[in-house]
Amino acid sequence: MRRNLRVAAYAVCVRDGNLLLARGRDDSGAPEWTLPGGGMEHGEDPCDTVLREVTEETGYRIEVTGLLGVDSRVRRFRRSLGRGVDHHALRIVYAGRIAGGELRHELGGSTDMAAWHPLGEVRSLHRVGLVDVALGLWRDRPPTGRAAHQG
């Protein structure tokens, strides 16, 4: 079984009771909302990753105001030709504040739209699980920085 580690950094940006989200596509191609952020490049600091990714996906420049925590997930699945993959996703979640720029949509990237959503309506959106995990970290600020689902 092939092993794969992906390290990524994401930002929770809340302003005036609204959460900044970016829209991508799920495995079936249906639109789904996620936090702005993404994969860390080799040699890149995770804080630099989140600054770069938020700008790429939303047009905003942010200031990182805190480290909320780390979400670690392992998932096993089959790829084409029946090859198994043992995928480990390590997702670093920061709190961020908009420091400049203007909202715009990403062109030619992994997302196609960025928008603010009222916090009270996020649960009704088609979204990735990371959104709920990150909002839990933002709300609860666990001293270990571990998401509630991690044992």
Rank of each mutant, 00 (worst) to 15 (best):
M1H: 15
R3Q: 13
L5M: 15
V7C: 07
A9E: 00
Y10V: 04
Y10L: 04
A11T: 02
D16H: 13
D16R: 14
G17H: 05
G17S: 04
N18K: 13
N18W: 12
L19I: 03
L19K: 02
L21E: 04
A22I: 06
D26K: 08
A30L: 15
W33C: 00
L35F: 00
P36W: 01
G38A: 01
G38E: 00
G39N: 10
G39V: 09
M40T: 14
E41C: 06
E41S: 08
E44G: 09
P46N: 04
T49D: 07
V50W: 02
V50A: 03
L51E: 05
V54P: 00
E57S: 02
T58I: 00
R61Y: 11
R61I: 11
E63D: 07
E63H: 05
V64S: 03
L67Q: 02
G69D: 00
R73M: 13
R73H: 14
F77T: 10
F77E: 10
R79A: 13
R79D: 15
S80T: 14
S80W: 14
L81S: 08
R83P: 13
R83Y: 14
G84Y: 14
G84L: 13
V85P: 11
H87S: 15
H88G: 13
H88P: 12
A89N: 11
A89E: 12
L90K: 10
L90M: 10
R91V: 02
A95T: 01
R97K: 09
G100F: 08
E102C: 10
E102P: 09
H105G: 10
E106A: 02
G108K: 02
S110W: 15
M113P: 13
A115F: 07
A115I: 09
P118H: 07
P118F: 07
L119S: 04
G120C: 08
G120P: 05
E121P: 11
V122Q: 04
V122S: 04
R123I: 12
H126V: 15
V128K: 13
L130M: 08
L130V: 08
D132A: 09
V133C: 03
G136F: 05
G136S: 08
L137A: 02
W138Q: 08
W138R: 04
W138A: 05
W138N: 06
W138I: 03
R141W: 06
R141K: 11
P142C: 05
P143G: 10
A147V: 00
A147Q: 00
A147Y: 00
Q150D: 10
